[in-house]
């Protein structure tokens, strides 16, 4: 592998990691705090992408599209959280999986009804290229990477410095004890759910120019997203970062070396991690229930 090829692959991998991170970190927090597997997040990912597609093609503004996607997804997520999740938080993981899978399928049906089955292209908002180590790479990939870094730092600051962030960390350790201090944990649940939905929508919108938006885009990314959550360790942000980086690179190099490996290799990594650390890379020993 030549140096330019290597540089290109690493950057492509980092951009994939960035999107995986945005999609997985909320899932990890949601499981850590609420003990739910929220498959409807992949609907918000798709809605984020479709809204970006609509606004970009109609109004010519990608960033406005991204914002529209986040707002639309959060509104939808708020409705779902208040009407469905409130009833199932106390019922165990299986309930949330089945219910949210239902929401996802209904949503995909609606997307097919509105936009049809044909994949749609989304214009890249930034068309420039940069030269790096003998290869030219689209600026947009660097923007995607930068955005994920900013989100990561923002999230860390939120969790470490703000009182609500501290309540989230406390809740991840023990929800009952958090409520025992007088904190309305359901309000914190709603907030984390909306945060997750917003991040999913952002991931979808940002991913859109790199792929094509299609009704099944959410389904296609489920396995990878959950694999990252599990490899990283449920409830751990640091773990999600590391496993996103790992899987991004593994997939990017897989594609360059031998395409079938790109699909298979992440699962091999997951098995290897489990052999060494059954709780995932940064899985907390404090996580119970």
């Amino acid at each position: 592998m030549s140096v330019p090829e290597l540089a290109g692959t690493v950057v492509i991998g980092l951009a994939m990691s960035a999107i995986f991170f945005m999609l997985s970190v909320g899932l990890s927090l949601s499981y850590g705090l609420m003990r739910i597997v929220s498959l409807d997040q992949f609907l918000y990912y798709s809605v984020g992408a479709y809204m970006t597609y609509v606004v970009t093609s109609q109004a010519g503004n990608f960033w406005l599209g991204l914002l529209t996607g986040v707002i639309a997804s959060c509104t939808l997520a708020l409705t779902v959280e208040k009407s469905l999740y409130r009833r199932i938080y106390e019922k165990g993981v299986m309930f949330s999986m089945i219910t949210s899978y239902g929401v996802l399928l209904v949503g995909i049906g609606a997307i097919k009804y509105i936009w049809g089955l044909v994949p749609r292209p989304v214009m890249t908002p930034i068309v420039g290229h940069v030269s790096l180590l003998g290869t030219t790479l689209p600026v947009y990939r660097f923007v995607v990477i930068g955005l994920a870094v900013v989100l990561y730092i923002g999230l860390r600051l939120f969790l470490e410095r703000t009182i609500v962030g501290k309540a989230i960390r406390a809740g991840i350790e023990d929800v009952d004890k958090t409520e025992g201090l007088g904190i309305d944990v359901y309000r914190i649940f709603t907030l984390v759910f909306l945060l997750t939905a917003g991040l999913s929508a952002l991931a979808g919108g940002i991913h859109a120019p790199l792929i094509m938006v299609d009704p099944h885009m959410g389904l296609k990314i489920i396995a990878t997203a959950f694999m990252i959550v599990i490899i990283g360790g449920l409830g751990s942000i640091k773990g999600t970062v590391v496993s996103s980086l790992l899987i991004g690179q593994v997939m990017a190099f897989g594609f360059t070396i031998w395409a079938p490996a790109a699909e298979m290799a992440p699962f091999v990594i997951m098995l290897l991690v489990f052999l060494i650390r059954p709780t995932g890379l940064y899985g907390s020993q404090y996580l119970r229930r």
Binding site: R169, E173, D174, K177, T178, Y286
Partner: peptide, 11 residues
């Protein structure tokens, strides 16, 4: 105040 004497360990 529960019996188990557990406070938030990461806080």
């Amino acid at each position: 105040i529960p019996q188990d004497k557990e406070v938030f360990s990461d806080l």
